[in-house]
Design a protein around this nucleic acid. Structure first.
Lengths: 295, 295
DNA sequence: TTTTGTAATATTTAATAAGTATGAATTATC
DNA sequence: GATAATTCATACTTATTAAATATTACAAAA
């Protein structure tokens, strides 16, 4: 008496509404005709509304039945779509990946990832945010980001980190600087210069690495300026306010009047890593990372 | 194994998704916690998608679960709305009534009905069509109309008819005609005049009735013109091309230079009836007719 | 009239939701 | 650290109910 309407009722109703014939509808549904009769009758009782007129030979829809037919079609279609999407999301083919990155990752890794994602999982949506190393770590810990691109090898507990791109460092000099590819031998030729670097706050490991490069050549650099923007650093170099040491890929993507001297011979590398929460359950994230490791 | 998702699952899912706590959700649903557990698990199996993460103390939604939650909320809300509307339609508080009428019903009966309907059932929509008696009958038989307003007492099998308004007949004379309210005694004073009547085709019973009025006074009228439009009839009278006998209520609603002499003393009456199909299941029609009988 | 085809009942059977009891695992509390 | 309390999951049983079979009632067609 006090039942609840179920999707089963809707599927049965739709079959009868389409066939306007209980036996045929029952056959289509692979159930018996009496079963269908009782279910439709129950449905009418639950909804307290007559849906069909059965006048001893013909079955027709009432106006209420006509109305319900349209609604049921809509609901069942929507449900089908929902089930498909749900499965996609569950398999990580759809959904949202929230990505944070250092500006220097925008030269190759992040664009490549986005292109690959777009190609392989066109329904996966991404949000991008340029953030410092620390800000990314915090965002990931508090579940505001799924994936970060940072330059650090040690991360807090609960996070995982994996290198995705290794880059050489390059010297950045004003165009008319006496040192060039031809006469450059070692960084100690520039020991007396003012250095312009990315801020320690923004990327501590980068900063430490640059210091270690100089240390290897036996000097401590005089750091005259610090910035969080590559653009700013290049502009300062262009205006002869100092020289810089940056990851080599940064030579692309900026319009500037400076020269790059790649230092392949030194041991240090600029390592870009991805970071994520170990227990992140976003299925799209997994695909995203798998894709990255293939790049 | 091979079950089908049901609305019950959605309701259970939503409770758990809201509470993020099986026991509390089960209490809210008035079922046992193990039952809820198994139902949610079954749901995940049917959808082949994990919806919750239970890490031994906390219950959280997966991204797929988050997605489904929004969709389930939408579907259940939509369903509630549909159920409400369906009940309204089933009770005839909503829907459409297709009404046909003779032009002469537009003076009082039909407008009163429309006003009453608008007031009591504001969600019932009406469509109106001015048609001859015969056209209305045919339209009702072929289910193109729900309700007709005709001047006839006998209708084909399967239809029902019921008088809704009884009107006297009036003589329609040119303004300067020698006969007026003061000196009018009987229709036989006008036996020699040309008569202008509604066409036989348009309203056979009216035509017969008018003839019987004359017959009672012992003459056969000379019918010079016939029309289906009251407006035309009045215009012809105005131009002294003849006199007319029409239902009295037609004196309202037209701008014309004619005089009406109501013939209360004769036995004939202009009866307007409603007609409908006996097995019409439009619930709005029933309300419509109930309303009419109260007017 | 008989035959055929329709939907509705009556009754039984099978499926399954939901209940009880219990266990494993974790956190809270002393 | 041990104990208690709380979590969700599992095993098993019961109660509910969907659905099957068999049948009836009715109408239209042959």
């Amino acid at each position: 008496m006090n039942y609840q309407i179920e999707l089963r009722h809707f599927i049965y109703f739709l079959a009868v509404a389409e066939e306007l014939h209980y036996r045929k509808a029952a056959e289509k549904l692979f159930i018996s005709q009496p079963g269908l009769s009782t279910q439709i009758k129950q449905m009418e009782e639950i909804l307290q509304t007559q849906l069909f007129v059965r006048d001893k030979k013909k079955v027709r829809l009432t106006p209420a039945g006509e109305f319900l037919k349209k609604e049921v079609e809509f609901i069942l279609n929507h449900l089908d779509q929902t089930k498909k999407q749900l499965k996609l999301i569950g398999q990580g083919h759809m959904g949202e990946v929230r990505i944070g990155f250092l500006g220097s990752a925008m030269q190759n890794v992040v664009p490549d990832l986005l292109v690959g994602l777009k190609e392989k999982y066109p329904l996966v949506h991404t949000t991008l945010e340029e953030l410092s190393n620390r800000a990314q770590i915090n965002a990931i810990l508090s579940d505001r980001l799924d994936l970060g691109f940072v330059r650090m090898s040690r991360v807090p507990k609960g996070l995982e980190v994996k290198p995705v791109f290794e880059d050489t460092f390059s010297l950045v000099l004003p165009q008319d600087h006496p040192i060039d590819l031809g006469n450059f031998k070692s960084i100690d030729q520039l020991a007396h210069e003012d250095f312009i670097l990315f801020s320690q706050d923004y990327s501590p490991e980068y900063y430490d690495t640059v210091l270690s490069i100089c240390e290897d050549s036996g000097f401590v650099p005089k750091v005259s300026h610090k910035s969080v923007h590559a653009q700013t650093i290049f502009k300062l170099v262009e205006n002869k306010l100092g020289i810089a040491i940056v990851p080599t890929t940064l030579q692309h993507g900026f319009q500037m009047e400076v020269k790059f001297i790649e230092m392949k011979q030194i041991r240090q590398r600029a390592v870009l890593s991805m970071v994520w929460k170990a227990d992140n359950r976003n299925p799209a994230l997994k695909n995203c990372m798998d894709l990255l490791l293939k790049l």
